[in-house]
Design a protein around this nucleic acid. Structure first.
Length: 638
RNA sequence: GCUGGCGUAGCUCAAUCGGUAGAGCAGCUGAUUUGUAAUCAGCCGGUUGUAGGUUCAAGUCCUAUCGCCAGCUCCA
């Protein structure tokens, strides 16, 4: 019998018998890979491990160490879940069940609403299926046969999907009596799915369209080892502990009230954060050559017609009337800023003009999307508009990039991802302007040596943009900053400047925000720091704790001294033991505690306890103040 | 907006089959005078989100409503 040559992962060629499966080859030749392999890649195509080898080829083995491999793993788990649901509730119709970034889901249509109480039952059934080690078998059918097959099974969602496929070859995976339309590849058998957990249930529309049927979605996660699953669940726990809604309550930062859903009530502690951050941003405005303006919250409706918001943004706006005239509450700051620009003539000598505004905007978000500080209906933008001459555009973009970097680093964000979004299908302005602006943004990023991804067709209708996604301390990405070139507004508002030639010219406008929404950014900071703010942001920086009543006066003096030097302190003179007060200060995540007992009141020192670290010894009050001041100035976290 | 779940004291939660709301923490008062994450005792605290309904009886069942939570195509 002839043999074939197979090369695995760029290794040596191996002689194999035709008809052998990849799995069989691995088992004998690569026992280590055999353990972690989930699929293989042949000439750029993903295939099952039970694929039969019938000719010479190069193979790449996909393991769970790479995202693609985890995708296969999760996808197979979602099949097992669907199989379990189908066996528990036979009338269930299957929609789709893909692997997603952190796990998988499957959408079902069934009459009975699923609840979290059903999850253990489904998990139990899944364990049975896994135990049986049912092989996943791939079959290919013609389009017509596939439609007939799923029609017979009453799986009309599958039929709908197949009908839209361009090719005539449809793959279906079988294990035991379960069959699912699937591109594959899949794990060789169900027992590869070792450790899993179903996480939650939610509603989802068929194809994400609210006009379609509502399906029930189950989310889950799985891993090849228990320790990986446990680590993942711990990470979810960690994220839960950092949830800014929870910390906002625990640290008494803000609240929401039924009287104003989506509108933040800032408490005194939260106000410290809010103002500290805002003051910091003001410093940055001036340091980077911005002038600050403030424009009204409600403005005549005609302005919003002119700006285009009426046509493009009406659904998200609030309206009111003043003296029988129609007014609108601003959802964005730019029109107001444009009016300020237009209020006086401008010379090329003044350009660029950089106007910043801490603008309070209102946007009517659908009730279902409100989410703590992350999605609110009223928020403050650290907005700015840069009006410049076309040849200044690149320099200004680079200056903005530098400013954004500086600001993020002050908050401990050193990693971010950047996307450049280009002209969308529906847009205004001529092609050469777009091309020019896209080139400018790209070249600015290149000159700063910042890697970025291009998001084709995702730009705003009025111009291309750069978006920043910052990575927080537990690895999550948050979209914050944005730099947008705008051709539309200067046109609509007929902005002008007088050039060196004495003629009137149209300026280019850049919109930029660094935090985006101050509310949202504070939410991100709360989660990023887990509520343990660096001292410059901490609402309370130090608690003064007298050990007993007789140290009260000495402690009070210390307290006065600290307050006078501008530190935000709290005096805990309650009739409680020191340990009790320390515990409370730790739970409130206050960075420093000053303990005053006999020794300290005698030598005018303080016994310093640092959050998380514990007792760090005694020192003179003045020395302690100097240390704190220095730490504040450095804006370090811990 | 839509689907599902949840709303009990300031907070975290209990209350069996529908049988007449309870605990810890917090708060207040008192005792204790404390050396690096909870001293002890007593007291206060509720129209069970709101409005209707069913029932001899509703936190519990039904309807409506408000709010909160999970989500609402990372293309089989």
């Amino acid at each position: 019998m002839e043999s074939i040559n197979v090369r695995i992962d760029h290794g040596d060629e191996q002689r194999c018998t035709p008809g052998v499966t990849i799995l069989e080859v691995l088992k004998i030749q690569h026992p280590d890979l055999f353990k972690s392999a989930v699929a293989a890649e042949i000439e750029g195509r993903l295939v099952d491990l039970i694929q039969v080898l019938d000719r010479d080829m190069n193979l790449r083995i996909i393991t769970t160490d790479e995202p693609v491999g985890m995708g296969v793993f999760w996808h197979s788990t979602s099949h097992v879940m669907a199989q379990a649901v189908k066996s528990l509730f036979p009338e269930t119709k299957l929609a789709i069940g893909p692997a997603i970034e952190g796990g998988f889901y499957y959408d079902f249509a069934l009459d009975r609403p699923l609840t979290t109480d059903d999850l253990p039952r489904i998990e139990e059934k899944m364990r049975e299926i896994i135990k049986k080690a049912q092989p996943f078998v791939r079959n290919t059918l013609s389009k017509a046969d596939a439609i007939a097959f799923f029609e017979e099974r009453g799986e009309h969602f599958k039929v709908e999907i197949i009908q839209e496929f361009p090719d005539d070859i449809i793959s279906v995976y079988f294990n035991d009596g379960f069959a699912d339309l699937c591109r594959g590849p899949h794990l060789p058998s169900t027992d590869y799915v070792k450790h899993f957990k179903l996480l939650n249930i939610a509603g989802a529309y068929w194809r994400g369209d609210e006009r379609n049927a509502v399906l029930q979605r189950i989310y889950g996660i799985s891993f090849p080892t228990k320790s990986l699953l446990d680590a993942h669940l711990r990470q979810l726990e960690e994220a839960k502990k950092r949830d800014h809604r929870r910390l906002g309550k625990e640290l008494d930062l803000f609240s929401f009230q039924v009287e104003g859903p989506g509108f933040v009530f800032w408490h005194p502690n939260g106000m410290i954060l809010y103002n500290t951050i805002q003051n910091y941003m003001r410093e940055m405005f001036f340091k980077h050559g911005y002038q600050e303006i403030r424009t009204p919250i409600i403005l005549n409706e005609t302005l919003w017609h002119r700006s285009g918001h009426w046509d493009n943004y009406k659904e998200n706006m609030y309206f009111t009337s003043v003296d029988d005239q129609a007014y609108a509450v601003k959802p964005m700051n730019c029109p107001g800023g444009l009016l300020v620009y237009k209020n006086s003539p401008h010379s090329y000598r003044d350009m660029p003009i950089k106007m910043a505004e801490m603008g309070l905007v209102h946007r009517h978000e659908k009730s279902g999307v409100l989410h703590g500080l992350f999605r609110v209906r009223q928020f403050t933008q650290d907005d700015a508009h840069v009006f410049c001459m076309p040849d200044q555009l690149e320099t200004e973009v680079i200056r903005i990039i530098d400013m954004i970097t500086e600001v993020y680093e002050a908050f401990g964000f050193f990693q971010y991802q950047i996307e450049l979004s280009t002209r969308p299908a529906r847009s205004i302005g001529d092609a050469s302007m777009w091309e020019q602006a896209e080139k400018v943004l790209q070249s600015a990023l290149n000159r700063k040596g910042i890697p970025f991804e291009i998001n084709r067709g995702e730009g705003a209708f009025y111009g291309p943009k750069i978006d920043y996604h910052i990575r927080d301390s537990i690895g999550r990405l948050w979209q914050c900053g944005t730099i947008q070139v705008d051709f539309s507004m200067p046109e609509r508002f007929e902005l002008e400047y007088v050039g060196a030639d004495g003629e009137r010219h149209r300026p280019v406008m850049i919109h930029r925000a660094i935090f985006g929404s101050l509310e949202r950014f504070i939410g991100i900071l709360i989660e990023h720091y887990g509520g343990a703010f660096p001292i410059w942001l901490a609402p309370v920086q130090c608690v003064v704790i007298p050990i007993s009543e007789k140290h009260r006066d000495a402690a009070s003096d210390t307290m006065t001294r600290l307050t006078e030097s501008g530190l935000r302190c709290r005096f805990d003179a309650r009739n409680e033991k020191m340990g009790y007060k320390i515990r409370e200060a730790e739970m409130q995540k206050i960075p420093y505690m000053c303990i005053i007992g006999d020794r300290e009141s005698q030598d005018h020192t303080v016994s310093v306890r640092k959050r998380k670290t514990g007792d760090v010894g005694s020192r003179p009050v003045e020395e302690f103040i100097a240390t704190l001041k220095e730490e504040m100035a450095r804006r370090t976290s811990d």
